[in-house]
Design a protein around this nucleic acid. Sequence first.
DNA 1: TATATAATCGCGACTAGGTGCAATAACAAT
DNA 2: ATTGTTATTGCACCTAGTCGCGATTATATA
Lengths: 134, 134
Amino acid sequence: MLLKKQGLRLTPQRLLVLDIIHEFDGPFTAEEVLRQTQARMSGVDKSTVYRTLELLEGLGSIYGMEVGGRTLYHHVDDMRHHHHLVCRKCGKSMDCDEGLFVQLEALLEDKYGFRVDFKHMVIGGLCRECASEG
Amino acid sequence: MLLKKQGLRLTPQRLLVLDIIHEFDGPFTAEEVLRQTQARMSGVDKSTVYRTLELLEGLGSIYGMEVGGRTLYHHVDDMRHHHHLVCRKCGKSMDCDEGLFVQLEALLEDKYGFRVDFKHMVIGGLCRECASEG
DNA sequence: TATATAATCGCGACTAGGTGCAATAACAAT
DNA sequence: ATTGTTATTGCACCTAGTCGCGATTATATA
């Protein structure tokens, strides 16, 4: 298991958080994980849950992105498509091909020497349906 | 003045916040505004400052965008360049030519019918200096 | 199985920011 | 200048999330 390397310890709290996370199909928030954890094992501190989430992100098994001031976590294996188009009207989110970004990536490096972190982008706008309405 | 419409009141606290905001050349945070406000007029509550910032954003005179969990405000009139490259190591932020985005914009519309909101983008990555270090 | 040693825990305090409310004060009308 | 209306204030309390610390405990080794 991924936790075994680097002297990381497999505590009951971590096991529980891992369990809970695996039960989510889609994206989830730290808050949801915290609530579920405390419901199933009383006394678990929020700092433990937050630190576990942070750890799992560091290990690369989940990925958190800030949306509207909160962090939304995704399972990394769900994320062949790292970019998301989020409609500001209906709130729907769709995956987006990474290939579309390579040109912009190259331009930014050329022009500014800026090496972009384009692993996970969240782009706001209007989806086809909402754009055609009003 | 912009505050006069809709029955909004020009209080000393608001006047002070307005003053302070105009003294910033570049982007600024709510925290900085709060500190300066309380330094010049003791007793001003943080909620007043936050509410004033929110109000000004609603009126369209400043624009706030979330970067690394905090809100960075910009003067709207400073914003010919709407895109910002923010270095995740040193925290520096640089403006970025909008022209670089038109191709991506077109691609997203073509492929997904998605009409992108590219007014204000914040792009994370590494600046030239930090990328060349380690 | 007993022991040593860190990794991890819960706790408590702290952060930025937000909210409901009763008191205050800006402004319009007299 | 006085008044009435109501927007705005400061207060107190709440939120999600972070951090240092001393106590606990998972795990490797003997």
